[in-house]
Amino acid sequence: MQTNRLQNVFRIILGLFMTLAGIGHLTFQRQEFLAQVPRWLPQDPMFMDFVVLSSGIVEIAFGLSLLFWAKERIKVGLLLALFFILIFPGNISQYTNGISAFGLDTDEKRLIRLFFQPVLILWALWSTGALRTLLDRNKKS
């Protein structure tokens, strides 16, 4: 399954975004990402830091995979969509607990942010060709 030029451009943009976000986890946005660790997880500072650092490493791996592993882009897209689903509880926690981070300093802004997670999921699936693969597979069933 080939992707078109527009999909490739959006895949590269997402790859750059993921790489930058991962670097942010490890460096200049570490405190902001700590605020997104769900409150139902252990709040031990070392554990929370581990969650932020490990998710940053995963995001860098996804970003670099989107940029340089085009042969496996469909698998990467599927896994990235799953990753976006798995980290969604952090966004919900930020909203339900009224935690300010990344400029999301009102309940309205935090609520609006929740609606962007499906956009990221679709972006990952569409830009890698994974969405077409899933849709074609469903047609054959």
Rank of each mutant, 00 (worst) to 15 (best):
K139I: 14
S65V: 09
E59A: 08
R110N: 01
D105K: 05
F47H: 09
A35M: 10
L53Q: 05
L80E: 01
G77R: 10
P42L: 11
Q94D: 03
T106F: 04
D49Q: 08
K140F: 14
L78R: 13
F47I: 15
M48C: 13
L26V: 08
I112R: 11
F10K: 06
D49E: 12
S93Y: 03
H25A: 06
A61E: 05
L104H: 13
F83C: 11
D44V: 12
M46D: 15
D136C: 13
F115A: 10
R30Q: 15
M18Q: 13
G24W: 01
G90Q: 01
D136W: 11
F10D: 12
L78D: 09
V9N: 10
I92N: 01
Y95R: 02
Q7R: 07
R30F: 14
R113Q: 14
K139Y: 13
K71N: 09
L86F: 00
G15Q: 09
L131S: 03
I92H: 03
F10E: 09
G22L: 04
L67E: 06
F28G: 06
A81T: 07
L41M: 15
Q43R: 15
L66M: 14
L80G: 03
R110L: 07
F102W: 03
K139D: 05
L80P: 03
L20S: 04
Q117C: 12
Q2N: 11
G56E: 07
